[in-house]
Write a protein that binds this DNA or RNA. Sequence first.
DNA 1: CCTATATATCCATTATTCTAGAAATATGGA
DNA 2: TCCATATTTCTAGAATAATGGATATATAGG
Lengths: 124, 124
Amino acid sequence: MDNNQATAAFDALSQDTRLRVFRLLVEYGQEGAPAGVLSETLGIPQNTLSFHLSHMNHAGLVQSRREGRSIIYTANFEFFTDLIRYMVKDCCRMEFASIREDTQRGCSVIEMPTCCPPKRKEKP
Amino acid sequence: MDNNQATAAFDALSQDTRLRVFRLLVEYGQEGAPAGVLSETLGIPQNTLSFHLSHMNHAGLVQSRREGRSIIYTANFEFFTDLIRYMVKDCCRMEFASIREDTQRGCSVIEMPTCCPPKRKEKP
DNA sequence: CCTATATATCCATTATTCTAGAAATATGGA
DNA sequence: TCCATATTTCTAGAATAATGGATATATAGG
């Protein structure tokens, strides 16, 4: 994940309609949902939604496949978690969010202190 | 963190200049840096940068304080990690990113499988 | 081949965002 | 008080994004 991919990803999530679409797709999981269902569920004209879906698809946030007459959209979870990794690694500090790879368990582990963040050093 | 705060946060990170500003502020940590230093470091006119800083400040991503004639900007790490929490909790699925609070150690722990995500159920 | 359905593309309009020059505001020091 | 410095606010033009009606494309079924 480089800076350009990241800005594109943030852009894809930076608009109310698109965030709603993504969150809805998350509910549908890997099965995904056809464009028409999303359009109907969210009450957004199909061509407007198509515009946003193509925007999100281009950014990498969603994927699509044809099934008969329908185009099924799915959230790209791998991309989304890569974005989270990028945020921790490249947009934060160890004191506030650290990441390590647990190869045993095959997962990334992020830790974020919940309270008492390190205080700024006081002037003497 | 609600959806509106989230879209505002994503919006604040969705533009090249602003992402660069944020990442630069991350380097300066809690001390922060004056607007002029950011402007000079990034080679962006000070009024243009001021526009972006105010945008980011309004979204909650950065904070500012006056010190003499300078306005010192700092990354809002608490807000940023809240955004990450929101992404895991409200924009993802357990299979791909899970979060739990480790009260003993006073931190949130996020786990994200790195490989072999659960396959979509096959049609029989 | 014809029709209905599902979705994308084209297009024009409107709305929003970005940019930077010019002016205004706030502070510190002589 | 006057001046220099640091930054914001005002302003307008340019660029980009969002919206939805009309049309085009792809597919399934008769």
